[in-house]
Design a binder for these strands. Structure first.
Lengths: 248, 248
DNA sequence: CGATGACTTGACTTCGCTCAAAGACAGTGG
DNA sequence: CCACTGTCTTTGAGCGAAGTCAAGTCATCG
C-alpha cells in the first residue's frame, strides 16, 4: 500500500533532537490565541511515538490509494503531500494539501476515501489504527486534541469550498497564495513557497491550469506579486493583494 | 443570541416517547456498515440529555451569528437549518445544511465562525460548551463518537467542495438532489423533499439562483426528474440521473 | 546536453452571470 | 373564503470570463 519507504522505528524510546513524536496543529476552541498552535504536550507526543513508525518518502510517491483497506493513520512532520480523488471524467480534484502537523488517513467504512501522494519529500509518522483507537479510548485528554484538530480541518475544508465557489481566477489564486503564506510564514514577510505544480494548484482551485498560469501572470503584470522562480512568490503590494482576496 | 425560543428543560430525567436525548449520525471508521448510522447508545444519550436544554425554533430564525461569542453547541433532532457566511461583496455562501442528528456550533478562538439559521421549524438540544467538554474529558468512549462524527462532517465538506468545483449547473444540481435524497430516504424511492429555497440552493452550489432554476427546468424537460410542487422532486430516470451525477 | 515534462501564450467556444420583467405561490387580513 | 401583497421563481437577452484546443518556450534531470 505504501511505496518505497525508509523505515526507522520510532519506539526505541528517547526522543531525537528535532523529532520527538507526532504533532498536531490547530486553532483552539476558546478565546485568546488567534492562530493555529501545537496541541500536544511532550508526554502526549511520547505516548504516540511509542506506537509510531517513522516513514520517509521521496517526492511523488503514493502513500495510499483511494478505496484500499485502511489500517493506519499518518502524521506529517515535514514536507507537503496532496490528498485527491480522480473523477470518472479523468479530472482530478485535490481535496487538501497536507503540511507539517497535519493528520491524514481517517477511514470511512474501513477504506481510505482519497489518494494521498507526496509533493515534496515527506517525513511522517505512521500509527496503526487499532493501536491509536486503543490509546484514545484510554486517554480522553489526548483524544480531545484530535477533536480540536478535526474541527480545525473541517473549517479549512469549508474555507476551501468558499474559495472554489468564487468566480474569478485571480481571486482564487490570491486566496491560495494567502493560504500558503500562512503555512510558510516561518520565512516571513511576503515570501511564499509553492511546492506544488500549476496543475496541482488548478486541481485544488477548480480551475484549468491555463487559468492558473494566466492569473499568476496577471498578478505579476499588475505588480501585486513577483515570482522568483516557478515555486517562489513574493507579495509586493499587500494592500491590493488583500483587496483581491476580500473581493468575493 | 438565540431568537425567540420555546424552552423545555431536558433534565427532568426520564426520556420522552420519541425524544431520548441528543443523537449523532455518521459513517463508521471500520468495515461492515456502508451507510451513516446512529452512533450513541441509550446511556450516552441520557448522559448528554442530563446537561441539555431542548429548544424549538420556527422557520427562518437565526440561532447564532458569525463572530459572536460561542458558549453552546447544538444537536439537531428534527428539521433543517443552514450554516453560512456573508461575504464582503454581499454574496452569501452556505457552507452546510444541517439535518437531524447533526451537530453545530463548534467554535474557533471562542467565536462562532458561521451564522446558523433555521430553514424549517427545528427541534434541537443545546448544551453549554463547558459542560460538554467536561463530560467528554470524563468519557473517552463518548468523545470517540464525536471524533467519528467530525470525521464524517469533514468528508461531507470535502464532497461539497468537489460538487462546487464542477463547471456544469445541471450536474451540480443533480448531485445536490442525490445528497438530499440520502437525507430523506425515509420516504423512499426517488421522492426528494427540498425544504430550502432556490436561492439557498444556489448559495450552497455556488451558482446564481437563475442557473439553479434553469437546471431544474432542464432536468424536468429531459424527463430525468419531475417536480411536484417547488419543494418536492422525484427521480424518474435513475440511469440518466446517475450518469449526470457521475459525469464530472 | 538533450529530452521529457512543466509552464506560458494565443484564438475560439461555451456556459453561467447580470440585468430585467413577468409569472406562481403562501401568508395576511378583510 | 377570497383578494392582496410580498416573496420566490421562472424565463429571456446579452455579456464576460474561464474552458478547450493548439503551439511554442522554459526548466530540470538524467
Amino acid at each position: 500500500m505504501i511505496g518505497h519507504t525508509t523505515r526507522l522505528r520510532g519506539n526505541d524510546n528517547h526522543m531525537e533532537s528535532s523529532e520527538s513524536g507526532p504533532t498536531l496543529r490547530a486553532m483552539p476552541f476558546g478565546p485568546g490565541v488567534k492562530e493555529a498552535v501545537r496541541l500536544l504536550t511532550a508526554e502526549q507526543r511520547a505516548q504516540l511515538l511509542a506506537i509510531a513508525t517513522q516513514v520517509h518518502l521521496p517526492a511523488r510517491m503514493v502513500v495510499y490509494r483511494e478505496g484500499t483497506a485502511a489500517d493506519s493513520i499518518f502524521f506529517v512532520s515535514h514536507g507537503v503531500a496532496k490528498s485527491f480523488r480522480d473523477l470518472p471524467s479523468g479530472k482530478r480534484r485535490i481535496v487538501a494539501f497536507l503540511f507539517a502537523d497535519d493528520v491524514f488517513g481517517l477511514a470511512e467504512a474501513g477504506h481510505y476515501v482519497n489518494t494521498v501522494q507526496t509533493v515534496t519529500p515527506v517525513a511522517m509518522y505512521r500509527i496503526g489504527l487499532a493501536e491509536l483507537i486503543d490509546v484514545l479510548h484510554r486517554d480522553a485528554r489526548l483524544e480531545f486534541q484530535f477533536l480540536r484538530k478535526l474541527t480545525h480541518e473541517l473549517r479549512k475544508s469549508q474555507r476551501h469550498t468558499v474559495i472554489v465557489g468564487r468566480r474569478d481566477a485571480v481571486g482564487r489564486v490570491a486566496m491560495f497564495l494567502r493560504m500558503l503564506e500562512q503555512h510558510s510564514h516561518l520565512h516571513g514577510n511576503g515570501r511564499i513557497t509553492m511546492p506544488m505544480t500549476r496543475s496541482d494548484t488548478a486541481n485544488y482551485l477548480g480551475l484549468s491550469l491555463e487559468a492558473v498560469s494566466r492569473a499568476c501572470r496577471m498578478l505579476e503584470r499588475t505588480g501585486v506579486v513577483t515570482f522568483t522562480g516557478r515555486h517562489d512568490a513574493r507579495i509586493v503590494d499587500r494592500a491590493r493583494f488583500d483587496r483581491l482576496v476580500a473581493r468575493l
